[in-house]
Every structure is written in structure tokens, then in C-alpha cells.
Simulated scan of single mutants.
Amino acid sequence: MTTDLQAVCAFLYREARHLDDREWEPWLALYAPDAEYWMPAWDDDDQLTEDPQSEISLIYYPDRNGLEDRVFRIKTERSSASMPEPRTNHMLTNIEVLAERDDAVDVRYNFHTLSHRYKITDHFFGTVYVTLRRHGDSFLIGRKKIVLKNDYIRQVIDVYHI
């Protein structure tokens, strides 16, 4: 089955829009219940950590429950790291299908996010590897691995930054 790249792009753009517009429930709805969400860290040898269970990660949620908890804390102002919520602008580029299976498609893309808070604008950029599972006439995110390429982060990084 050949995946329509335009449909993949539309899905990824919708996810970015939900983050920019702080539409948390529709954003969560794009994730499968068992979706893994992982941002490995860079180690002292400039290599990405490989195992979120035994090595440091910038963000790791083994399933959507972790994302739901994160959104709950953001929405109920129980996250001092998110108060006030930053204004973000996500840009996606170089979206390409890496592999296809009957039920899923593996996609790679680059991102650049601007995040404005306290009169300061930060830049976050990197590459995302995502597995999209076919779900009706659209997709659900089954796995998302974010490779943040910034070499210095001066604040807490959160799901809306990437």
C-alpha cells in the first residue's frame, strides 16, 4: 500500500497546529494509547543515549498515559515550568517516508520551533522519527523519537517545544 505523502504532511501539520494553539485534547487524540514518546539526551561523547530505561533522556513517556499526565499538569497550572505557557511556532520540513507496512508508516522530518516567554525567544531544532499507524482514513502516532540538536538548553524542555 502506497502512503499518500500529502496525507502524512497534513497529519503532522495538524499536530504542530494543536501544539501552537494549545489544543491539548485534540493533540492527545493523535496518539495511540500505547504510543512511546522519547527524546534521548546527548552523552559526554556526543552520542545519543540508546536506552530510555537505563540512560538519561530529556523526555520519556512509555505510553500516552505519561502525555496525558503532562497535559493535566499544564492545564491545571501544576507545572511551574510551564507558567506562563510559552507562545510557540512549529515549522516542519524535509518530511519523508522511510518505510511502509500494511498497518504503519515510518516517517522522518526536521523541525524548528520558536518559543517565546518572558520577552525571550528560544529556538529548538532537530529531527523526528515517527511511526504513524493507519487509523480509518488518517493516522495515530505509535512512536515518536525526537532528536533535539541544540547543544545547550537553558530551560526545561517540554512537549510543546518540539
Rank of each mutant, 00 (worst) to 15 (best):
M1C: 03
T2K: 13
T3N: 08
D4E: 14
L5I: 13
Q6E: 14
Q6A: 15
V8Y: 02
C9A: 15
C9Q: 15
A10E: 15
A10P: 12
R14M: 15
R14I: 11
R14G: 15
E15S: 13
A16C: 15
A16T: 14
L19N: 14
L19S: 14
L19W: 14
D21P: 00
D21W: 04
E23T: 06
E23Q: 12
W24A: 11
W27F: 04
W27N: 04
A29M: 09
A29T: 08
Y31K: 03
P33Q: 11
D34Y: 03
D34I: 00
A35Y: 05
E36L: 11
Y37F: 13
Y37M: 07
M39I: 14
A41N: 09
W42P: 01
D43Q: 08
D46G: 11
L48Q: 09
E50G: 12
D51H: 10
D51L: 07
D51G: 08
P52N: 12
Q53Y: 12
S57Q: 11
L58M: 15
I59F: 10
Y60Q: 10
Y61N: 12
P62A: 09
P62C: 05
P62L: 07
D63Y: 08
N65Y: 15
L67S: 03
L67V: 08
L67P: 05
E68C: 07
D69H: 13
F72K: 06
F72N: 07
R73S: 00
I74A: 03
K75W: 00
K75M: 07
T76C: 02
E77G: 02
A81S: 09
A81Y: 01
P86A: 11
P86T: 10
P86M: 08
R87P: 00
T88M: 10
T88L: 07
N89P: 00
M91A: 10
M91Y: 13
N94Y: 03
I95N: 02
I95F: 06
E96C: 08
E96R: 13
L98Q: 10
A99D: 15
R101V: 01
D102K: 11
V105L: 10
V105M: 10
R108N: 12
N110I: 03
F111D: 05
F111A: 01
F111Y: 03
H112V: 14
H112F: 15
L114Y: 07
H116A: 09
H116I: 04
R117P: 04
T121R: 05
T121Q: 10
H123P: 03
F124K: 05
F125H: 10
T127L: 02
Y129T: 04
V130A: 03
V130L: 01
T131G: 00
T131D: 00
H135Y: 04
G136W: 12
D137L: 00
D137R: 00
S138V: 05
S138N: 09
F139G: 05
L140A: 02
I141S: 03
I141K: 08
I141A: 08
I141Y: 06
I141W: 04
G142P: 05
R143A: 09
I146D: 10
I146R: 08
V147M: 07
V147I: 07
Y152A: 02
Q155M: 09
Q155L: 08
V156W: 03
I157F: 06
D158C: 02
Y160F: 07
I162L: 06
I162W: 02
